[in-house]
């Protein structure tokens, strides 16, 4: 997990300052270079290049079907199994092309965690949900697993609500708790990148608020990319925002600028709700 050590370097002192799209000394964690994605003949992503700064939150916004989820899922290769999927271009994580033949997908996904639209805990206990990532890696040390489970649950701000019920069936939790459990589950394998595909769209406003606070907190340790339909959410949580439309990257930049003074008319129209 070399990526982790790089994120712990002195650079983190800059986390407090507002990250710029092109920071001076902070490295790019994720880089997309000239990405085209096709599903059979349909082109879902059209020549997108975009760099994402370490320890920042980047939001992908755009109308349904614009390709933002497809784009997000490139970073942990979750599109690979979809029928008819093929692509051109490179995705670099820590300067390594993750679509290179030498990359093992399982190893990649340990570094790049993902949280889905609908909370999807396994039909197991809370404890076993969080422990799953470690167990499939072959970790046998039960004490180590237990510590990591508790640490992850705390990090996901869920521990205080369920600390006496770790053996309870995960599906008995509320929707918001389930989603935080899914975040804890992703954190337990110590990724350095966290992908979130509309993580609050199935939740009520209060649960959504908790998740947003949590995302803010997690930024200190993780590079977060979030797809969202909720414009206010993008404005609230993200440092940078990318607006996608029909597979094109229309505009990408500082969130505040995108939401107050976008360069393109189309962006303006979308964020003010005139279409989409």
């Amino acid at each position: 997990m070399d990526s982790e050590t790089t994120s712990q370097q002195p650079k983190t002192s800059q986390v407090e300052t507002k990250p710029k799209l092109n920071p001076n000394n902070r490295s790019f964690k994720l880089q997309a270079e000239n990405i085209d994605v096709f599903y059979d003949d349909f082109q879902a992503i059209k020549d997108i290049s975009l760099d994402i700064v370490e320890n920042s939150i980047t939001a992908f916004i755009g109308p349904s079907g614009c390709g933002k989820s497809t784009f997000l899922r490139l970073f942990n290769r979750m599109n690979d199994n979809i029928d008819g999927f093929h692509m051109n271009g490179k995705i670099l994580i820590d300067n390594k092309n993750i679509y290179d033949e030498s990359i093992k997908v399982e190893e990649l996904r340990k570094k790049v965690g993902m949280v889905f639209q609908k909370p999807n805990p396994f039909p197991k206990s809370i404890y076993e949900n969080v422990a799953y990532g470690l167990r499939i890696q072959g970790v046998k040390d039960e004490e180590f697993i237990e510590n990591r489970v508790i640490e992850s649950l705390k990090q996901a701000t869920l521990y205080s609500e369920i600390e006496d019920n770790l053996d309870k069936q995960a599906l008995s939790l509320s929707g918001g708790q389930q989603q935080r459990l899914c975040i804890a589950r992703a954190l337990a394998v110590k990724p350095s990148v966290l992908l979130m595909d509309e993580p609050t769209s199935a939740l009520d406003p209060i649960s959504s608020g908790k998740i947003e606070d949590l995302i803010h907190e997690l930024k200190k340790e993780f590079t977060i990319v979030i797809v969202t339909h909720n414009m206010q959410q993008a404005a609230r949580v993200s440092d940078n925002t990318a607006f996608l439309y029909m597979g094109n990257l229309v505009e990408y930049g500082d969130t505040q600028k995108i939401f107050t003074n976008p360069e393109k008319d189309r962006t303006q129209n979308y964020i003010t709700g005139r279409f989409g």
């Binding site: 942990n76 979750m78 340990k110 992703a186």
Partner: peptide, 25 residues
């Protein structure tokens, strides 16, 4: 549900691990 498969895959499980630990149970 495919969401279970996705969740397991996204955590770095191999195909067989996903089948054995999630799909079959």
């Amino acid at each position: 549900p495919s969401s279970i498969r996705d969740a397991s895959n996204a955590l770095g499980a191999s195909k067989w691990q996903t089948i054995w630990h999630q799909i079959l149970p």
